[in-house]
Simulated assay, not measured.
Amino acid sequence: MPFGEQPAYLRVAGDLRKKIADGVLAPHARLPSQARIRAEYGVSDTVALEARKVLMAEGLVEGRSGSGTYVRELPLPRRIARTGYRAIGESTPFRQEQSDESVKGTWESRSEQEDASPGTAERLGIVPGERVMRTRYLFRMEGDPAMLSTSWEPLGLTGRTPVMLPEEGPLGGRGVVERMAAIDVVVDNVAEEVGSRPGRAEETLELGGVPGHAVLVVSRTYYAGGRPVETADVVVPADRFRLAYRLPVK
């Protein structure tokens, strides 16, 4: 196929996508049937079917059992600010993940001990199998599920201290920086990597999304003098949120 020339099913999908973007096919409108696409574009059943599959895979339309395929109402992406890490003060887990002061939110959590997997051990600079505290969070913005986070802290550092459980004790729910300071560990650096992948079924169930749709994954690690003290994966629905960074210029 010559460079720049598209297969027929992509040309059809592109035209339907434009109609959705322009509002010709409005949210909740029924997508033209396979027979109508075939007749309107002069293509085969196979091409019409593949074009519909493309739009479904892109999350622009959804199938309704016994009814047909309809245009999805796409949410306006909301902003998650990933800057403004605090040393001491209002450094709650929610503020740790969303630094925009105007955004209000809550969280649920559950902690349990486990053996560090090879991947977790590498991120924490410990030996695989060493005990870590794993904490899973579900964050809500104005009541709606927004983010999932799974964090790991080495029990060789926090074990048998008042901050061993991130959400319990005198500093429960105060965030990594303040909790570590309480055991004389000064967090001075944080590193983040952002990637994307298809959402897993259990993640999208908790976040109210569609399995297979893309999620953003922020892999974050807090350091104290070069030593990793906490690492976490933050999962955000890519169709509903945007990550915003503001970085200082030195």
Rank of each mutant, 00 (worst) to 15 (best):
M1H: 15
A8E: 02
Y9V: 10
R17Q: 07
K19S: 06
D22R: 08
D22E: 13
V24T: 14
L25M: 06
A26R: 11
H28R: 14
L31P: 01
A35R: 11
D45V: 06
A48W: 07
R52Q: 15
L60H: 05
L60G: 02
V61T: 14
G63V: 14
G66W: 02
S67P: 01
S67I: 08
Y70E: 02
R72C: 04
E73P: 00
E73Q: 07
L74V: 12
P75I: 14
P77V: 14
R79K: 14
R79N: 10
A81S: 07
R82M: 11
R82D: 03
G84S: 09
E90T: 02
Q98D: 03
S99E: 01
S99H: 03
D100W: 03
K104S: 10
G105T: 08
W107N: 05
E112M: 10
E112T: 12
P118D: 09
E122S: 11
R123N: 12
V127S: 12
G129K: 05
V132G: 01
V132E: 00
V132A: 02
R140N: 06
R140D: 03
R140K: 13
S151L: 05
E153P: 01
P154M: 03
L155N: 03
L157F: 07
T158V: 14
T161G: 01
V163Q: 01
P166Y: 01
E168F: 08
G169K: 04
G172Q: 07
E178H: 02
A182D: 04
D184R: 04
D184I: 06
V186D: 02
E193N: 09
V194E: 10
S196Q: 13
R197C: 03
G199L: 00
E203H: 07
E203M: 05
E206T: 06
L207E: 00
G208A: 05
V210N: 03
V210G: 03
V210K: 08
V215E: 00
Y222W: 15
Y223F: 15
G225H: 06
P228K: 02
V229A: 03
V229Q: 03
D233R: 15
D233N: 13
V235L: 04
V236R: 00
A238Y: 05
F241E: 02
R242Q: 15
R242L: 09
L247N: 14
